[in-house]
Design a binder for these strands. Sequence first.
DNA 1: CTGAAAGCGCTTACAG
DNA 2: CTGAAAGCGCTTACAG
Lengths: 346, 346
Amino acid sequence: MFDEVADPPTGSRATMKDVANVAGVSLKTVSRVINQEPNVNELLVRRVRDAVQQLSYRPNLKARSLRRLDGRSATIGVLLEDLSNPFSATILRAIEEVATARGVSVLGGSLDESPERERRLTASMSSHRVDGIILAPASPSHEFLAPEQVAGTPFVFVDRPPINLDADHVLSDNRDGTARAVERLLGLGHERIGFLGDDEALWTARERYLGYYEALRVRAIEIDDDLVHLNVHSMTAASALVDGMLALDDPPTAIFTGRNILTIGAVRSLRHHGLESRIALIGFDDFPLADLLVPGVSVVAQEVALIGRRAAELLFNRLDGDRSATQRVVVSTHFIPRGSGEISPV
Amino acid sequence: MFDEVADPPTGSRATMKDVANVAGVSLKTVSRVINQEPNVNELLVRRVRDAVQQLSYRPNLKARSLRRLDGRSATIGVLLEDLSNPFSATILRAIEEVATARGVSVLGGSLDESPERERRLTASMSSHRVDGIILAPASPSHEFLAPEQVAGTPFVFVDRPPINLDADHVLSDNRDGTARAVERLLGLGHERIGFLGDDEALWTARERYLGYYEALRVRAIEIDDDLVHLNVHSMTAASALVDGMLALDDPPTAIFTGRNILTIGAVRSLRHHGLESRIALIGFDDFPLADLLVPGVSVVAQEVALIGRRAAELLFNRLDGDRSATQRVVVSTHFIPRGSGEISPV
DNA sequence: CTGAAAGCGCTTACAG
DNA sequence: CTGAAAGCGCTTACAG
């Protein structure tokens, strides 16, 4: 034997017990050093630290959280629509920032608007015993999460409110943001304003439509069914619908699009008809390079990172013991004029 | 007492033992049912299933992985540059897809080009006992990961190769992709081609520069220092440098930009000078709406999702026991002509 | 086909 | 200031 104490074998990890053996102290002393408890002899601290170094020891969080009274795993779950889209990605990053600062890791997942995936992934998070879950929901009802909530897992909803469940949530002011933008178009003299919206099943799509509806109502302008299209899912569908509206006997002089891919579809159609500088356009959601298009595309922008940050703050407040009533946080949108929304009717 | 067996108290979760009590069977029988082991009496299976339902029982993965021989946590770590940028977000999503199909969850983190964050977050992943780690590295050396690797955690690097560590990696053909694009410009008759590149410390930035360098060398065109700028970090810096190049006595007739934000900076400058249809431009990395600009921006596009998928496949192969030699996977880039790269010199 | 005992790597509660 | 024993919620290895 060349080593005084045998190293643990390759392919397996050093445990606290290995560290104790190498340092010549008890398990409990190692635990004290790792957890920075006071009142440990300097010399022993040093010996433990050296052994940790020598063995590349990493405390096992799974074992720790299994035994600890609070059972915390130092992990939260974040389930969003699609981690590859800029909206979800920005929210995830903002949450990560808050979590990392507290030494908490983030388990992420994409729901793709699938209620079934929502059930599966929340169950998975639950099996991982995450300390809390932030969710941009896909289901028509969240009753099924009640047992998790009762078991002590706090939920914070983002982008859309919970249904049949009492939980904190963070939303944009979809309706007001849209109404104010449509009011701007009305203020310029537009009376025929087209509307393209996403899937009616989505709360955000309905809210944005309601903003449009209310703004017209206030001015006593009747809704023209030829100018309103909901359940538009793609850029190409949006282009085709704008093509159709432009072919009407009485075409719109302005268009409001309820989502960025629909906005881009509208831009393509207007360009195709050479009307991008004649017909006003405002979109909900900012998008990269909107300012580099000609004309620049005016938008109702969401504070996406702020939504993520607020959600994380709410969650950690709950984890810190906040038992106050459920909170709804509404994050303001802001209008960004870039040209396309400032075109007057001819 | 109304219930025959007391439910576990609010705020705590049902355990396998609780399920066993409610179902009137032993712990081991519950374990068999949960893990779908064969040879369990139909009646007992049913009773256990009912108890699971009634108690909203979720198996505790932490406890399971603590005891299991393979110690698998059904979790992998994914550390990328910035989860909010489209490149990282697309990779994460592609990995998530492969992982979810295997019932594995993804712990994500952003490194922000910080070696210190890389150390901290890999250590954190290690404490979570992830089964493997996919990493877009930020450090100048990855020696410090050797102990983790020896302890049995496989690593797969993406976007950049490991340094001082033997590990699988997935890269784009940065150098070739750039060289072929620059050759196209040369083919059009361009001889003065500007180059803007990212931080020289980054492997990708160096490779792309080498592609530019080699393409010119083959044609025996000398590199003009006035036309080459490395360590360009922002869109505004790129704009200013293009402004400067355009003011030269002998300005470039074409520009190659080594990263999408630099490309956008270059577009801004060319527009500002009204030269966007006179001076050719090709950028590395595609970006949204590149086709909607006038002229459309020609790019060398990476197969970003494929990079993520390949990395995940490599990792899971290792977890499935593949002990073959370290692999380097090179994913091809492809050129997308949209107009700006097809402009001939005047 | 079913179950009682031991143990994974830690923390807790307690004794000295 | 230090440590030995029990136990977190599971799976393993074994007995019946």
